[in-house]
Structure formats: structure tokens, C-alpha cells
């Protein structure tokens, strides 16, 4: 297990460095004129251009720019975004919000997805099963932007159950509506997956064995079936966290959450290589860490993997 872990960590480091390089190269190749992008529709005067070009090393070759960036990354100095703010400050403010949003979305997806899926799986073909299937299809077929806007209009503006936009004074509660929107797709998929998995496991031989031991149905479902059914669900939902983080971009925009999505959007718009690469690198890092955790969790949940 330790050797496996070390191998995985080394792989992660390589992937990380490679990914930052590729992202940096991509940003470099699309950037036509970050300074003009920053200035928007207004012209930039030559002296300002000369100053900023030198400050951000914009006239130097790609590999040197990347070198400056990595040097900063390693020494913990992220440098300044083109917009002028310290990238470290931006990260420190934005990441916790996106992480909270993503984790709450994941939590909602896990709690409702699994409990709904178990319920549907236990009562296959029942009213709940049918309705949830129909809703799942709707959710899968609707862009998150539309869902977000509709939820905002209905639950926040019309019904007044939530605030339409980010309100830090509400604490964690401010993330609930956006997190529902963000987590809905994972919830729907997770619910179907759980339902199928539960239904399949209910028919398995070991369930028969368990009931021949005289166990209650409740215990059979909660212990024997659930534990087995969760294996694919955990794998799915675990890898979803990375996806949720990147999906947060749209949700954050709609609900005005000052998280990483807005910064990333701004960074891409302003062709801000260092900012975009820092954000994307952290996204990659989260993705790598969660997949490692999922793999470890998978091994914990399924002994056949552990000993295989």
C-alpha cells in the first residue's frame, strides 16, 4: 500500500508539472495582446504599454515566461495578475468559496442522490422511481445555465426562499441554492446509478444468504446491499468533485459567488496567463487528489481491489 501511494504521488507530481506546462502553452498561444484586452475598448498609450510589457515579461519568449511562472510557483510567489492584484490574494479569497460551493453541492448530491437512489431501487417501478427517472432526463437534458436561472427566478425572486445572489452575511446558507443547481446533474446521475446498483445487488445471491440468516430487511439493505451498491457510486461521485469545481463557473456567475469561476473567466478574457494557469493548476491538483482519494476509498470499500 505504501509503495502504491508513493507511486501515485510521483505520478501526480509529473501530471501536475506537465499539465501546468500545457495550460501555460495554450494560454500563451491564444494570447494576442493581454494589455489591450485589459484596457478593453480604450486605446493603450505607448508608455503604459512599455511599462506593463516589461513588468509582466510579455515580450519574452514562452519558455522564459513559463520559467518565471514556475519559479514563482515553487517559491510560493504567485505574482500579480494582469489586473494588478496579487494572485495569492485572489486565490485565498476565491478558492474557499468555490470549495464550499463544490463540497456542499457534492454533499447534496451524495445525500439526496444516494438516499433517493436507494429508495427508488427498493421500489423499482414505483411512483418515486418513475418520477425521478423523468426528472433525471429533464435535468440531464437541460443546460445548467437554464436550470440556474430558472431556480433563481422561482426560488429566490418569486418565492423568496433564498437570496438571488451571494450574501456572505448568511454564512454557509448562501451556498445552498447555487449548490443545488450545481449538484443537480451529479445528483440525478448518482441517483440513477445508486438505483441500478441497489436493484442489481438486491437480486444477488449474498442477499439471499443474508436473509437466510434471519436478518431483517432493513439490516440487509443498510449493511449488505448499501455497502456493495456504494462502490460504483463512490467512484462516480468522487470524481465528480473535480467536475463540480469546473462546473462552478456557470453557477458562480449566475449567483454572483466571487469564487474561482469568475476569476478564471476574467483571466481567460484578459489573456492572463499566470492567473489562468494558477487556477487551472489548482483545479488539476484537486482533481488529482480526489482521484487518489477515490481510488483509496475504492480499495477500502472493495477488498477484491485491495488484494487484487
Amino acid at each position: 500500500m505504501t509503495a502504491y501511494l508513493i507511486r501515485r504521488l510521483l505520478q501526480m507530481m509529473l501530471t501536475f508539472v506537465g499539465a501546468t506546462f500545457i495550460v501555460y502553452a495554450l494560454m500563451f498561444s491564444i494570447a494576442s495582446d493581454p494589455l489591450q484586452a485589459l484596457a478593453g475598448d480604450k486605446p493603450l498609450n505607448p508608455s503604459q504599454r512599455a511599462q506593463l510589457t516589461a513588468q509582466y515579461h510579455l515580450d519574452e519568449p514562452f519558455i522564459k515566461q513559463y520559467g518565471y511562472y514556475m519559479k514563482g510557483l515553487v517559491t510560493g510567489k504567485f505574482g500579480r495578475a494582469i489586473s494588478g492584484r496579487q494572485i495569492a490574494d485572489v486565490m485565498a479569497e476565491a478558492w474557499p468559496r468555490t470549495l464550499q460551493l463544490g463540497l456542499i453541492a457534492l454533499l447534496i448530491a451524495i445525500v439526496l442522490g444516494i438516499s433517493g437512489g436507494v429508495y427508488a431501487g427498493l421500489r423499482r417501478g414505483g411512483a418515486f422511481d418513475q418520477t425521478s427517472l423523468a426528472l433525471t432526463l429533464v435535468v440531464i437534458g437541460t443546460p445548467i445555465f437554464v436550470i440556474g436561472t430558472v431556480f433563481q427566478s422561482v426560488f429566490a425572486v418569486e418565492l423568496g426562499w433564498f437570496r438571488p445572489s451571494y450574501a456572505p452575511e448568511l454564512g454557509i446558507a448562501t451556498y445552498i441554492l447555487p449548490a443545488i443547481v450545481l449538484g443537480l446533474l451529479s445528483l440525478a446521475t448518482g441517483m440513477r446509478l445508486t438505483r441500478t446498483s441497489v436493484a442489481e445487488n438486491l437480486r444477488s445471491d449474498y442477499v439471499r444468504t443474508a436473509s437466510s440468516k434471519g436478518l431483517t430487511r432493513r439490516r440487509i439493505v443498510a449493511v449488505h446491499v448499501l455497502r456493495n451498491s456504494l462502490i460504483p457510486v463512490v467512484t462516480f461521485l468522487g470524481t465528480e468533485l473535480g467536475g463540480l469545481m469546473s462546473g462552478a463557473m456557470v453557477t458562480e456567475g449566475i449567483f454572483n459567488i466571487p469564487g474561482i469561476g469568475g476569476r478564471l473567466f476574467q483571466g481567460i478574457r484578459l489573456e492572463d496567463g499566470p492567473l489562468v494557469v494558477t487556477i487551472v493548476s489548482l483545479l488539476i491538483l484537486i482533481y488529482l487528489v480526489t482521484s487518489l482519494l477515490v481510488d483509496l476509498l475504492y480499495a477500502v470499500l472493495d477488498p477484491r481491489i485491495r488484494h487484487g
Binding site: V157, E252, G253, P258
Partner: peptide, 18 residues
Amino acid sequence: FKIYQTQTTQYQDLLAGQ
């Protein structure tokens, strides 16, 4: 001055009394 990413959200907040 409340800072928004989109004007549409501002409008939703206006409707919601925020």
C-alpha cells in the same frame, strides 16, 4: 456598492428586494 459578475443577477436582486 455591491459587486456583481453579471447585470442580470443585479436585476434579480432588485426584484427580490436585495
